[in-house]
Amino acid sequence: MSDSKKILIVDDEADITKWLTLLFEENGYQAISAADGSEGFDKAEKELPNLIVLDISMPVESGVKMYRKLKESDKTSEIPVIMLTGVTPEFENFISSRSQVPAPEAYFEKPVNKEALLEKAKELVG
């Protein structure tokens, strides 16, 4: 398992993190999770995952804020990010306001199609 790629899942919904963790683990990845943007960023800096799956709407610190911090940090700026969102306008707002940061590698609208998510993960990290 030590060679397996590491994916960080950041979502405040425990059931979602549990499911995605299992989904990635079952498909040969190593999965770790965090419940909000602040915890997620700390873990990203410490664990340096190969991919981050990031929810947008979260209390304490949103996915948008965490994404900005990731892109501003030398340690994490190269980690590809898949954004998850429950609300399309929220994501559109994010896209239109992100002039200072590059676009995320992909985004999926909830409920996520697991095959499509796995395919994207494979494409991004192998």
Partner: peptide
């Protein structure tokens, strides 16, 4: 409505996850 959609989608994800497990 936007918030409602968000909540429902999260629930759907939870159901999807439950089904998968």
């Amino acid at each position: 409505v936007a918030g409602l959609a968000h909540s429902i989608k999260n629930i759907l994800m939870g159901l999807e996850g439950g089904k998968y497990i």
